[in-house]
Structures are given as structure tokens and as C-alpha cells.
Amino acid sequence: MNKQKNKCRYLLYLSAFMIVTGITAAYGQPDKFIESIYPVGKLKPTDTVSKLKVGDPAPDFTLPAVAGGKISLGQYAGKHNVVISFVPAAWTPVCSDQWPGYNISRDLFEKYDAVLLGITVDNIPTLYSWIKQMSTPKEKIWFPVLSDFYPHGEVASRYGVLRSEGVSERALFVINKKGIIVYIDIHDINERPFLEDLAKALEEANKQ
């Protein structure tokens, strides 16, 4: 009986030792978020033909939001300017840091009375995990993230930014309170648009 007890004790000590060494070692590992980003390599800068131009009325749409419910572009008409940020795909480079930049720029959007809508062609569960990882403990993603997953990329297609491989362009549309498109940036998919360009467009939109 005593032997059995000793055996258990040794095993318990060993397990504790293993857990402690395991935890210490794992603590020093590189960040899991960076490791999870899929390396896409260099892509064709743009892969679509414009369907819309500045001055056109923005096509209305309704999409499911990660936070629940549905959001329509039309609900902001007459109330706020709108920025639509299409990014190609969750868990890819560039996209994974473009929105975190907007996440700490809430003041900029509010200054020009603008709401930001983030759209990708990913499904809700993927977007849920992705934006959870990019939020900071203090600042959760403050803007609605919408899924253009099914019918696949329908809104991206209507805005002329659905690429042949099924993801969207990295594109920014600024829509004024009258529902008119006042700024379009179909950006090189491999590069991030600079914030000052959007800031300037918002300033202009808010004057109208």
C-alpha cells in the first residue's frame, strides 16, 4: 500500500515538474497571431475593371455583421458619411494590420462624421476569430465588420472589386451623406493605403 502511495507521489511530482517546464518554455514562444498569418506572396496589384466612378450613387446593400444582425448602407443615408473598406481576406498579411490602424483612428472618423464598414468575402466564424485576434484588450474593434460570403462576393462584385480568384481588391470608398461616392481608391493589393489620403477624402466629403 505504501509502495503504491509513493508511486503516486513520484508521478505527481513529475507531472508538476513537466507542467512548470512546459509553461515556462511556452511563454517565450513567438506570438501566435503572427504565426497564424498566411503568407500570400506578391499578387497582381489589381485584377478588376472599375464599375463605379466618383459622382455615382453608391449601390445599396445589406450584409450580416460579425456582431450580429444585418447592416444596410441605406441606414446611414442623410445621417453620416460612410467609408467602406474592402480587404481581400482574413488571416493574410497587410489586411491583418490595415484594420488595426483604423481601430486606433476612431477619432478621425468621428471628426468627419463618418462611419466605417469593413467588408471581406470571408464567412462570419472566420471573421469572428480574426478580428478577435487583432483587437487590443482595451480597444475592441469598434466598427461593424460585414461578411460578403454568400452569395459569394456579391457586394464586392457590384462595387467592381471582386477579383478573379474570388477575393476582393483592397479598396476604399467614401460615400457622402447624400449617398454619392466621393472617393475611390482601388489600391495595390500588396500595399496598405496611407491614412492621410483617407483623412483628406473624409475632410472633403464632410464639406459637401
Partner: peptide, 27 residues
């Protein structure tokens, strides 16, 4: 310490060493 316990201890030590080595490699 009986034989079977010695074996268990040895086995666990090997596992720990192997795990630590792999982590260093991964870094």
C-alpha cells in the same frame, strides 16, 4: 524505487528533454 517506477521516471525525463530540445529548434 521499484523497476517499473524507474522506467516511468526515465521515460518522462526523455519526453521532457525531447520537448525542450524541439522548442529551442523551433525558435
Amino acid at each position: 524505487i521499484d523497476k517499473s517506477l524507474k522506467f516511468v521516471i526515465l521515460y518522462l525525463l526523455i519526453v521532457i528533454l525531447f520537448y525542450q530540445y524541439n522548442l529551442k529548434e523551433a525558435k
